[in-house]
Design a protein around this nucleic acid. Structure first.
Lengths: 210, 210
DNA sequence: GTCTATACAGGGATAGAC
DNA sequence: GTCTATCCCTGTATAGAC
């Protein structure tokens, strides 16, 4: 049952708590950063704990002082990338849908990291990997919530049809980004941008009557 | 470099060729069928070659007489499932889009096999796995082609708007099925059916004016 | 022709020394 | 905190029995 072996610096990253281990969190962040680089280079399968450790100049066993398991390290990498993406996304929030920008976010990540995300989602779908499952379930939930609020604004601004259920539309938006990216990753000839703008157009209120 | 060690029964499955090994192809098919069962039970990660071999009552080394590599076995499983799906899909081809039916196809597959497909796509995105890459690239290409011809029929029947690029719409359809399924697999509370019918409605010619 | 036996390199997890 | 040593599992590869 793997009953809670109490990983050291688990939830000790909050800034305003009691006593911290400044050395510890710093090292942890360093591992995270180097791990991202390794993923970007060799992808998910190539990024063994030993490979990551070697890139830092540390044995693979040492990594487990900061990340209880390989899966945990992977999830933390994704969390970190999400944080970075959110930080970059600030400041360009208008009432437009802005799907093209979301797409650029998606694509800006190096190929290795895109593969990482896909591999992690796949793992989350497997039996057993509850941690990954929970992570992605809440991640997609918040993605949908974010899309929903954007859609609400867009509808008020009049750029989205008023007769469609926005919850379904939100799920549809996220699904489109995911699915088109998959096809584009497999075959760069696929016009992913065309698919995005098509969906954006389909959501618009009235097709110009002529 | 792994320079072509000539796998035995590689392309010897065609029915009308020269001399066959009837015993061989039968055994191969048996392995395939049992492998599908194992995948359905334990998923992608749990289905090691040794596990599959054990389920058949054979050593793992024996499997490699029929499938040059683990990846090859996996791909063959997916090919087999595709064949079955195509066979079942015959007979219900009207001019409707029929997305709901496609969804049922998607869902009918046991969880383990859905995870298998996702895991294989993820692997195909990784560097190196060219076989998987090729398989899914052509697979998605033919899925899009199929969707395109369906969309053409639907447009002629008047159930799809005439002012949209159907190639982009085809990619969008496939992407939606993929993406929504991912969300639904992670969280059964997601109304995947709602997303599908929404897209179908968005593609319809004119929203009832009122 | 088909399969078992066996070896190899590499993976993640873990225990205990320093 | 980090290491080394070890365990058990994986896919791959080869030799040889029948």
């Amino acid at each position: 049952m793997s009953s809670e072996t109490a990983p050291p610096a688990e939830r000790a990253t909050g800034p305003g708590s009691r006593g911290r281990y400044p050395k510890g969190v710093k090292r942890r962040q360093e591992i995270l950063d180097r791990a991202i680089e390794v993923f970007a280079e060799v992808g998910f399968e190539g990024a063994s704990l030993r490979a990551v450790g070697e890139a830092i100049g540390v044995s693979h066993a040492a990594l487990r002082r900061y990340f209880a398991t390989r899966e945990e390290l992977f999830l933390e990498v994704l969390r970190e990338k999400d944080r970075q993406a959110i930080a970059e996304a600030r400041g360009r929030d208008d009432s437009r849908l802005g799907l093209a920008e979301s797409l650029d976010d998606y694509r800006s990540t190096v190929p290795g990291l895109m593969a990482l995300r896909h591999s992690m989602v796949a793992r989350a779908l497997e039996l057993g990997n509850e941690r990954s499952r929970d992570f992605f379930r809440t991640r997609y939930a918040s993605l949908r919530a974010e899309a929903l609020s954007t859609l609400l604004l867009a509808r008020e601004a009049g750029v989205v049809r008023a007769d469609i259920p926005l919850e379904a539309a939100a799920a549809l938006l996220i699904a489109t980004l995911d699915g088109l990216s998959t096809q584009w990753l497999l075959d760069p000839g696929v016009d992913i941008h065309g698919g995005i703008v098509l969906l954006e157009r389909l959501l618009e209120p009235a097709p110009a009557p002529r």
